[in-house]
């Protein structure tokens, strides 16, 4: 039996019929075809699926779509505006903060959550905040450098 929900995703309200068992990540990827949010595990361990739910970073694989009814969701697709990269995207690009890119949407959404809540975050705080986001490629150094640079850039602007 379906349940009707309305979720505002990246500023656009979507009303849809979902089965209660649908995970938020499946709703985003399959019903809204926003495939930027990735799925990397079955155990809520990898962080690839991180999105913002009413401004808070959450693992969209650990939230039911029906729980997001009436909420605002921001995904990686909502970062750039008018063709301009968001500072966090620009910083990942400039600092070579990605290789295969699989972890990148989750990394950026977690990092952005940290920067928004703690604009003065130290490198140690950035590392700690990213503890739930696994990357199999980069070795993390360039990711931390990218987040550092985005935080500084966002503090200036």
């Amino acid at each position: 039996m379906g349940q009707t929900i309305t979720v505002t995703v990246n500023g656009t309200a979507h009303t849809a019929d979902v089965e209660p068992r649908t995970l938020l990540v499946h709703f985003l990827r399959e019903q809204l075809t926003l495939t930027g949010t990735h799925i990397g595990c079955d155990t809520s361990t990898c962080g690839c699926c991180t999105v913002h739910l009413d401004g808070e970073p959450v693992l969209s694989c650990s939230v039911l779509a029906v729980q997001a009814d009436g909420c605002a969701v921001r995904t990686v697709e909502g970062l750039s505006e008018g063709g301009e990269l968001h500072p966090i995207q620009q910083a990942f690009h400039e600092n070579h903060g990605l290789q295969c890119g699989f972890c990148t949407p989750g990394m950026m959404m977690t990092a952005l959550g940290v920067i928004e809540q703690n604009p003065q975050a130290s490198d140690d705080e950035i590392r700690e905040a990213l503890e739930g986001n696994l990357c199999r490629c980069t070795g993390y150094q360039n990711i931390v450098a990218a987040v550092r640079s985005a935080a500084d850039q966002m503090a200036r602007s």
């Binding site: 991180t50 970073p57 959450v58 693992l59 939230v63 977690t110 700690e128 503890e131 739930g132």
Partner: peptide, 9 residues
């Protein structure tokens, strides 16, 4: 516990 994001929920 877990990570920052997990501790938030």
């Amino acid at each position: 516990v877990g990570s920052l994001v997990i501790r938030g929920r």
